[in-house]
Write a protein that binds this DNA or RNA. Structure first.
Length: 613
DNA sequence: CTGGGGATGGGGCCC
DNA sequence: AGGGCCCCATCCCCA
């Protein structure tokens, strides 16, 4: 399943002894790559977003996974990848992505010759052995030393990752949902397991050349005799090579079982399973995706030629595809269009904000050129209000809630600067006056810092308790006061009388069984929403809500109906939907006896009974 | 044209 | 972190 287009390419290049030349299309792999690259530039079927500095790149998981073991481990888990900007810049990544999709180092936009040293660093970091080798050759030819670049982070004078883990929280706050997997821990840390699972498939299904390439992928620095730290027989010990790469794989062991052979995916996670389905190459005879759902998601009947032009307008409508329910497909298509109409607002807004807040900032092509018609960039001009307060408070959002669409908009206006609960990145652009260097602001004490690291170091000086007290104090001055509410503690509501709920919200009347839930609830009273969407900037109080929201951006619908192939973003929706097929109507109106498949429709129906109109 | 119902999407929130 | 449920909003179909 992992053997993507590049694996195909390798097969073709490697030649096959059992197949005569008349049975082989010499240009097949080239054409395939060409198509893929075209699709990438159009955003068609792109299923992963890579964020580098302020730029967003869209790509295909299969292609990334096939070209780099690093990407392979990343895209298994995530659809949004945030690359270490210390290791790769957006300009360099642009070249790299082009290389991945074309096999050529295209002349960059830069007037000067591409900086092979930085390219080599990035290639090593991203574990692109062939590109790294190319760079090394060029550097060698130019007589430039490249050892420092090859050793990656260590060579760049950066502290080992384990020492940099303290920044993780800030990074998570800025890019929540990216998690440790993406930022804090290099995915190569999962290599031992990867080698035991997917790579075996890789090796087993490839010819020798493919296996050899993979071997180099496992050991990026190697495979180039006399150049890398590893000898040409590097396949023997990839671990050592990783160390030499400076990718510090020994630090902070990932929360994974030891190198027991087995799949990365947790089989009980439908989302992940689905993601793995996403990774399957279109057209691959994968029984796991043989249902109409996945088939629909792959963009239509396999025998149908892909209509890229049509797809340009709305890739998501293509994703929905003819799933056997034309009406629904149509509806989804229009819905998606409606949705994408909203996105440009947020994005264009972000574009106008400063460097960090704006994913699209300096590099117009980050979206404009790279994904002109993709989910992120489709549609027309801005349609929402500008200049709203950057950090919408709950009340504001709820008061102005004349539609989730609108609240989404306002949310996105405010959210271009990812904000943490206790720390906050304040993007440029909200004020015409520059903030100077202190763009990272600690919310509790309002101190500004020039870097996330410094902010994070500072944040750690605040204790949880202290922060909590400050939040509490803010509410006390704002309304009611906690004291009078505290008195209510003695009078728990009858509804909760059966079960002790000793943890009471200091702001409202709600009580909870455990402090964690209370804490979570208290966040709903905070004026800042800790979890911003990386794509539209909308802020959320809970990480889970944000990641769920992110799914809608990425068009991820992991939960497929076996009956009709419709896909949903949530399990619950699928459960609901399944009643359509089963005919089950468990919700009955006590007034008229009407039965409903969904509770919410019963509720809506009950309103009809109760409302005077 | 209108209202009701079916179905779906997204966010909030609790567990 | 993820599941489950609630809510609101919306679209579509149909009587």
């Amino acid at each position: 399943m992992v053997s993507g287009p590049l694996a195909l390419r390798w097969c073709a290049w490697g030649g096959r002894g059992d197949m005569g030349p008349d049975m082989e299309l010499p240009s097949h792999s080239k054409q395939l790559l060409l198509q893929l690259n075209q699709q990438r530039t159009k955003g068609f079927l792109c299923d992963v977003i890579i964020m580098v500095e302020n730029s967003i790149f869209r790509a295909h998981k299969n292609v990334l996974a096939a070209s780099s073991i690093y990407f392979k481990s990343l895209v298994l888990h995530d659809n949004l990848i945030n690359l270490d900007t210390d290791m790769v810049s957006s300009t360099v990544f642009q070249q790299i992505l082009d290389f991945i999709y074309t096999g050529k180092l295209l002349p960059s936009d830069q007037p000067a010759e591409p900086n092979f040293s930085t390219l080599l660093t990035a290639a090593s970091y991203l574990q692109l052995p062939e590109l790294a080798a190319l760079c090394r050759r060029r550097l060698k030819r130019a007589g430039k030393p490249f050892g420092s670049a090859r050793v990656g982070a260590a060579g760049m004078g950066r502290p080992p990752r384990s020492q940099r883990l303290s920044t993780t929280s800030v990074i998570q706050a800025r890019y929540p949902g990216l998690g440790d997997r993406r930022k804090g821990a290099h995915p190569s840390q999962e290599l031992p397991q990867a080698k035991g699972s997917d790579d075996e498939l890789f090796l087993g299904s490839s010819n020798q050349e493919g296996a050899h390439t993979l071997g180099r992928a496992l050991c990026p620095a190697g495979g180039e005799a006399g150049l890398g730290g590893c000898s040409s027989s590097t396949n023997e010990s990839s671990g050592g090579c990783e160390q030499e790469l400076g990718l510090d794989l020994s630090k902070k062991s990932p929360p994974l079982p030891p190198a027991t052979p087995g799949p990365h995916l947790t089989p009980d996670d439908p989302a992940q399973l689905s993601d793995s389905q996403h990774s399957s190459p279109p057209g691959a005879p994968a029984p796991a995706i043989a249902n109409s759902a996945s088939y629909a998601e792959l963009g239509g009947a396999p025998e149908e030629p892909m209509d890229l032009e049509g797809a340009e307008d709305n890739p998501l409508s293509q994703l929905e595809g003819p799933g056997g329910q034309p009406r629904k497909s149509l509806r989804h298509s229009s819905r998606k269009k409606e949705w994408s109409k909203k996105e440009p607002c947020a994005l264009s807004e972000r574009k106008e904000t400063g460097p960090k807040g704006a994913c699209l900032g300096e590099e117009g092509e980050g979206l404009g050129g790279r994904v002109p018609n993709g989910v992120l960039a489709s549609g027309g001009g801005p349609s929402g209000p500008y200049g709203e307060p950057p950090y919408p408070c709950k009340e504001e959002e709820e008061n102005g809630k004349d539609g989730s669409e609108d609240s989404g908009q306002s949310g996105s206006e405010g959210g271009s600067g990812p904000a943490g609960a206790h720390y906050l990145y304040r993007p440029e652009g909200y004020e015409t006056v520059s903030y100077g260097d202190n763009l990272y602001v600690c919310i509790p004490c309002a101190k500004g810092f020039p870097s996330s690291e410094q902010l994070n170091a500072h944040v750690e000086t605040h204790t949880e308790e202290e922060l909590f007290i400050k939040e509490e104090g803010a509410y006390e001055t704002g309304s009611g006061g906690a004291e009078e509410e505290a008195e209510d503690l003695s009078a728990p509501s009858a509804a909760y009388a059966a079960e002790p709920r000793p943890f009471k919200c200091s702001v409202c009347e709600k009580t909870y069984k455990d402090p964690a839930t209370l804490r979570q609830h208290e966040k709903t009273h905070w004026l800042t929403r800790p979890f911003p969407c990386n794509i539209c900037g909308k802020m959320f109080t809970q990480r889970g809500t944000m990641t769920r929201h992110m799914r809608s951006h990425l068009g991820l619908k992991p939960f497929a109906c076996d009956e009709c192939g419709m896909r949903f973003t949530r399990q619950y929706r699928l459960t609901e939907h399944m009643r359509v097929h089963s005919g089950e109507k468990p919700y009955e109106c006590q007034l008229c006896g009407g039965k409903f498949t969904q509770q919410r429709n019963l509720i809506s129906h009950l309103r009809m009974h109760t409302s005077p109109s």
